[in-house]
């Protein structure tokens, strides 16, 4: 076969390009540790995500000092949780699955991008150095409302990040002279212990109590209010823990009526 010298030169140049491309990608994988979405996760039943311990309640969990896991469910035409909130300076592993058709989970303007296939769990580990707010889009056609499928990913300042959950149980109505109780449960879903102050404000008066909640634990603080001091009528109260707030109204009555169920 009779190949012109110039064409031989080009053949070699073309092979150099090809090998160079493969070498660059290999450097990215081995040298920089960029991993591909793979088959490391077991399959799941898309119709039974409600019973799946990871996906029944889509959420972010802390698994190490600066390590988090995000369990994300994509479905027509939404992502949950939404927004996904993680701290800056952390390493987050996303586990994403679909309840129905094929979607994608793609964080706009970043290299976080995966297909989401029902039955399969896509997993990717990402380091977030800086705080920022990103949009999440589905970039695979998933039905007539595909263009409305979006979510948010918030990377918040490390010292502003917590996984505290506040729930308050309070009496609605008490008789004058009785004591009203307000139970404040503070759940700390992070691993480190949480030192904070639970504040109750009622009728302009403020009560505070310092609490320490161990990682993964819930502490309940009970405030007892003497209704004689408050007097008859409606009294608005607010419970504050860090940035979280809950509020309600305590009604002090002369005499309790039966079956009177006022909401809050």
């Amino acid at each position: 076969m009779n190949i012109h010298t110039y064409e031989k030169v080009w053949l070699i140049a073309a092979l150099v390009l090809i090998v160079g491309f493969i070498a660059t990608v290999t450097y990215g994988s081995v040298g920089l540790g960029i991993a591909m979405i793979d088959d490391s996760e077991e399959t799941v039943e898309p119709g039974e995500l409600g019973e799946d311990e990871r996906f029944a309640d889509p959420r972010v969990e802390q698994v190490g000092e600066n390590e988090y896991e995000a369990y994300v469910v994509a479905q027509t035409f939404m992502f949950s949780p939404d927004p996904i909130e993680v701290p800056a300076g952390s390493e987050v592993t996303f586990y994403v699955t679909s309840r129905d058709v094929i979607h994608s989970f793609s964080v706009a303007g970043t290299n976080i991008n995966t297909m989401v296939i029902p039955g399969e769990v896509a997993t990717m580990t990402v380091e977030f150095d800086e705080p920022g707010e990103y949009g999440v889009v589905c970039n695979e056609y998933c039905g007539s409302g595909h263009h409305n499928m979006e979510g948010q990913l918030h990377v918040v300042e490390e010292d502003e990040f917590d996984m505290t959950e506040l729930s308050v149980e309070a009496d609605d109505e008490v008789e004058t002279g009785d004591e009203a109780t307000i139970d404040v449960a503070v759940e700390n879903r992070m691993l480190e212990e949480l030192e904070t102050t639970v504040t109750l404000e009622i009728d302009g008066e403020t009560f505070g109590e310092d609490v320490t909640v161990a990682g993964g634990e819930t502490e309940t603080t009970t405030f007892t209010v003497d209704t004689a001091d408050l007097g008859e009528g409606d009294h608005d109260w607010t419970v504050t823990v860090d940035d979280y707030e809950d509020s309600g109204t305590l009604t002090v009555v002369d005499e309790l009526e039966e079956e009177d169920d006022d909401d809050e």
């Binding site: 994608s104 706009a108 303007g109 990103y134 949009g135 970039n139 695979e140 979006e150």
Partner: peptide, 19 residues
């Protein structure tokens, strides 16, 4: 390269904008 997806009727989103 800005992350605008293919195959969508309205690549205009409520919660964010492509930069």
């Amino acid at each position: 390269l800005l992350g605008v997806p293919r195959r969508t009727a309205e690549p205009q989103y409520d919660g964010f904008e492509f930069e």
